[in-house]
Design a protein around this nucleic acid. Structure first.
Lengths: 119, 119
DNA sequence: TCCAACCATTCCTTTACAGGCATATTCTTT
DNA sequence: AAAGAATATGCCTGTAAAGGAATGGTTGGA
């Protein structure tokens, strides 16, 4: 819900993740990003296009250049998505984990009669 | 840092994202996941392999089956990574945004002397 | 012991995508 | 007006990865 696939796949690309991290410290032009990434300019433009389509960045043209600014929306959505899991590790994930370890040890006790274990 | 690329690319795949969401409600066997996803069993096993390599899930064999359990670690790392951005939208992203709009309007005032505007 | 169920692995094919390169576009400068 | 930055787009190619199908390996049950 809201957590689209494209949001994740945008960040799955190393260079795009890097761009997002760069823009965390403030807006940058394409040229500046290109230098930081050590990539060719066309590739950077393409990555920025993808990030733009996902709502990760916004452009404002300034003279010859284009200034890219990070947009918080997709990150906020990621945060919301993580929320449903946060309970899992905050309200003691251990309880479930302990329960499973209990089950497992019970089974290991069975199979240990022939001395063969998996792995 | 710690926020690896592979963590993102694991969730970039729709079916894997779905698996993670399924496991949020509790451990499942391969067969159960296969039914839910409507995929062939081998593909599910492959996706689970990827998730396992990224530390997203853990397996404990139980008789004939294999029970997959969601592991919080990668999600915790995502959460930590998001932390550095959280300030951005909590402590007013607008200030920076306003500053940029100021810069932009300043430049537009320059170029408006010849009456040409972008957009 | 033999068969069936459950799951992992392998091979093959196809497709999506990132990089390289050339080019188009827009703005600035002279 | 011409030339030169800064950026975007299009085409081509290689590669990684996902799905399909077959197979191998365990475990449980008859």
């Amino acid at each position: 819900m809201g957590m689209t696939i494209t949001t994740m796949s945008a960040l799955a690309e190393p260079n795009r993740l890097h761009i997002v991290e760069l823009l965390r410290d403030g807006p940058l032009t394409v040229g500046e990003i290109t230098v930081q990434l050590g990539l060719a300019q066309p590739q950077v433009s393409k990555h920025l296009r993808v990030l733009s389509d996902c709502g990760f960045v916004e452009v404002h043209p300034s003279a010859n250049r284009r200034i890219y600014t990070l947009q918080p929306q997709p990150l906020i959505e990621m945060d919301a998505w993580l929320d449903s899991f946060r309970r899992m590790w905050e309200e003691r994930f251990d309880r479930l984990d302990d329960y499973l370890k209990l089950l497992q040890s019970k089974e290991e006790k069975q199979s240990s009669t022939e001395g063969a274990e998996d792995k």
